[in-house]
């Protein structure tokens, strides 16, 4: 199997997490992992992002596969059920809106910037070292903190299920994966 440039995008995923540790504004790059899959599925009607470019999936595949950090057991039935996958998708988007709402509050001046990264939608980790001020509005940084929290949370969940089940178990319930599959189903319904 020939390696392509896009088979190394796991490096970008690692770099993303590292950069956000030093300067939170890099977290804005995470929007790429959000919009590119949606655009590919909406325009081309394929899961090209998952199937080729997703660095996060590659990272889990590498750590769980090559590095052996996975038990390689079957994922439990409920976890791959449509009910769980779609509920998790809905929950994920609800949390995304909460995050955007908090960003809006900072933009509008109703709330001060919180220099923290929220993990698992609950735990607030201090992260002030990664904030060096911004040329723009404090809201720009708030979105960065919020988005980094989303990325870190999903990486953490992915790592846990990688260890417990198969390397890329995260891909079974990944909200972007479920979302793009739904878009493809809708788009390819008649044809």
């Amino acid at each position: 199997m020939k390696k392509h440039w896009y088979d190394h995008l796991w490096i970008a995923s690692l770099a993303y997490l590292a950069l956000g540790f030093f300067n939170i504004l890099f977290a804005w790059l995470g929007l790429l992992c959000f919009f590119i899959p949606l655009i590919i599925s909406a325009v081309k009607g394929t899961k090209g992002y998952c199937n080729r470019y997703c660095g996060r999936g590659q990272l889990f595949g590498l750590l769980g596969g090559r590095f052996g950090l996975s038990r390689k057991k079957d994922i439990p039935g409920w976890m791959k059920s449509k009910a769980f996958r779609y509920d998790f998708l809905a929950f994920f988007f609800a949390m995304l809106f909460v995050m955007l709402w908090n960003t809006w509050l900072v933009f509008s001046g109703a709330q001060d910037l919180r220099q923290a990264v929220t993990l698992l939608w609950t735990f607030r980790l201090p992260w002030h070292w990664a904030y060096h001020g911004t040329l723009f509005h404090a809201g720009v940084a708030q979105l960065a903190f919020g988005f980094y929290g989303v990325m870190l949370t999903s990486t953490l969940l992915g790592l846990v299920t990688m260890v417990l089940f198969k390397p890329r178990s995260w891909c079974v319930y990944c909200p972007m994966g479920s979302m793009t599959q739904l878009i493809c189903k809708a788009k390819n319904k008649n044809g």
Binding site: M1, S41, G45, T46, K47, G48, C50, N51, R52, G57, G61, K80, R85, R168, C171, V172, G177, S178, T180, Q181, I183, C184, K185, N188
Partner: peptide, 24 residues
């Protein structure tokens, strides 16, 4: 009906004997 169309199978197949059709 239970496939999530992630494409992990495609990446490991030595014969290109499996593919994801239309992201479904």
């Amino acid at each position: 009906s239970a496939c999530v169309a992630c494409g992990c199978c495609v990446k490991v197949c030595p014969r290109q004997a499996i593919k994801v059709v239309r992201g479904i």
